[in-house]
Simulated assay, not measured.
Amino acid sequence: MTSTKDAVTARGEWVRQANRFTQRVAAEAGRYRLIVSLACPWAHRAVIVRRLLGLEDAISLGVVDPIRDERGWRFTLDPDGRDPVTGIEFLSEAYLATDPDFAGRFTVPALIDTTSGLVATNDFPQISLDLSTEWTRFHRAGAPQLYPEALRAEIDEVNDGVHRDVNQGVYQCGFARSQVAYEEAFDRLFTRLDLLSERLSDRRYLVGDTITEADVRLFTTLVRFDAVYHGHFKCNRNKLTELPVLWAYARDLFQTPGFGDTVDFDHIKRHYYVTHPDINPNGIVPKGPDLSGWHSEHGRAALGGRPFGDGTPPPNVTG
């Protein structure tokens, strides 16, 4: 069996499963379908990058139901409960067709090769980078440089700390199986958030003066913070709304085309609160928080910078 399941160490630390399909994908318009959950922060990265770069016509998008059952992600949002392009009812069908011995979680995002129905890659960190670097001939006119070569070393360094302590950190808090493991993850998370607040106190974006991959990766955790991580995952030293710099930074991005218009709070809340019965056994989905603050003035433009550099915002498109 090809097992890459999540694990828990002897100290009660949660360890995310490794990505199973990590081969690189050659860019070919119309061949691949990006399967995502709008609830998942890892998938959300790819949704944002695809939108910012204008790759909608080159890579189609399939969205799964936010409620995942024991069989994995379901296409129950589509007519007849099947993905209209691949014809599958569950993402697991593509995984098991690619590797019949696969025994891990069937994760999103996944790029499906529509010519074979097989998983081309589920390597979420590489997917968004490849959209920026390998799919350039399919980018829209005016697409931003999200991973500019001159800034890659700094972007990678920032991403490393954000991934370890924030993107992963909220899960390590939520899925910890001992008090010590939880508290260590909690301390790493808020230490990193404090460092990010300091970094962003006098600059609009994490690296350089435009939006980059680093901002995309931090945003997808921040936008879920008060809705799910603060309560559901016990990340409760502060709410995002109580961290002035990060709250303003997150609102700035949310109000930028390609960010807030890809957020679905309904999917986010229903997924987390319904699919983790060990954390929330009654499956009750909170009514809050109040989301109106996301549209309030943030004042970050005074720090300078241009969201898209010499490029332009993505047009108002769907799909």
Score class of each variant (00 low, 15 high):
residue 88 I to T: 07
residue 283 G to V: 09
residue 131 L to R: 00
residue 309 G to C: 05
residue 101 D to T: 13
residue 14 W to M: 00
residue 156 D to A: 10
residue 46 A to T: 15
residue 15 V to T: 02
residue 106 F to D: 00
residue 162 V to R: 00
residue 217 R to C: 14
residue 284 I to L: 10
residue 234 K to M: 02
residue 206 L to I: 12
residue 189 L to A: 09
residue 301 A to G: 07
residue 199 R to A: 13
residue 238 N to A: 10
residue 288 G to R: 07
residue 282 N to F: 13
residue 56 E to S: 09
residue 277 P to I: 06
residue 271 H to D: 04
residue 45 R to T: 08
residue 224 R to V: 06
residue 44 H to F: 11
residue 208 G to R: 08
residue 160 D to N: 10
residue 293 G to V: 11
residue 60 S to L: 03
residue 10 A to R: 01
residue 58 A to G: 00
residue 314 P to E: 08
residue 38 L to H: 08
residue 80 D to C: 09
residue 144 P to L: 03
residue 175 F to P: 00
residue 235 C to A: 15
residue 139 H to K: 05
residue 172 Q to V: 00
residue 111 L to S: 04
residue 207 V to I: 14
residue 22 T to N: 12
residue 164 R to Q: 14
residue 252 D to A: 13
residue 62 G to F: 02
residue 102 F to A: 02
residue 76 T to Y: 06
residue 276 H to Q: 13
residue 140 R to Q: 05
residue 306 R to Q: 14
residue 210 T to H: 15
residue 282 N to L: 14
residue 309 G to I: 08
residue 124 F to M: 10
residue 202 D to R: 12
residue 291 L to W: 12
residue 46 A to H: 01
residue 125 P to I: 03
residue 23 Q to V: 11
residue 75 F to P: 05
residue 233 F to L: 03
residue 142 G to E: 07
residue 29 A to L: 06
residue 223 V to C: 12
residue 74 R to F: 12
residue 159 N to Q: 13
residue 17 Q to F: 12
residue 288 G to A: 14
residue 290 D to W: 12
residue 28 E to N: 09
residue 250 A to N: 08
residue 109 P to F: 05
residue 281 P to A: 12
residue 117 G to N: 01
residue 260 G to S: 14
residue 62 G to C: 06
residue 44 H to E: 07
residue 67 I to L: 15
residue 209 D to G: 04
residue 180 V to R: 01
residue 112 I to L: 09
residue 301 A to E: 15
residue 273 Y to F: 13
residue 295 H to L: 14
residue 125 P to N: 02
residue 109 P to A: 08
residue 187 D to P: 00
residue 54 G to F: 04
residue 128 S to T: 14
residue 226 D to R: 08
residue 17 Q to M: 08
residue 32 Y to P: 02
residue 216 V to K: 07
residue 203 R to D: 03
residue 312 T to E: 10
residue 198 E to F: 03
residue 316 N to R: 08
residue 311 G to N: 05
residue 1 M to A: 12
residue 174 G to L: 06
residue 315 P to R: 07
residue 194 D to F: 06
residue 57 D to Y: 00
residue 95 Y to M: 06
residue 211 I to K: 02
residue 241 T to W: 08
residue 199 R to P: 01
residue 204 R to Q: 04
residue 258 G to L: 07
residue 307 P to A: 15
residue 269 K to Y: 01
residue 287 K to V: 14
residue 271 H to F: 13
residue 195 L to P: 00
residue 131 L to A: 05
residue 112 I to P: 00
residue 192 R to L: 01
residue 157 E to W: 11
residue 5 K to M: 14
residue 54 G to E: 04
residue 30 G to Q: 04
residue 275 T to L: 04
residue 318 T to A: 10
residue 51 R to K: 15
residue 22 T to C: 15
residue 111 L to Y: 05
residue 24 R to F: 09
residue 259 F to E: 08
residue 112 I to R: 00
residue 311 G to T: 11
residue 260 G to R: 09
residue 194 D to C: 01
residue 105 R to Q: 05
residue 180 V to H: 05
residue 245 V to S: 07
residue 306 R to M: 08
residue 281 P to L: 08
residue 136 T to S: 13
residue 6 D to L: 01
residue 211 I to C: 05
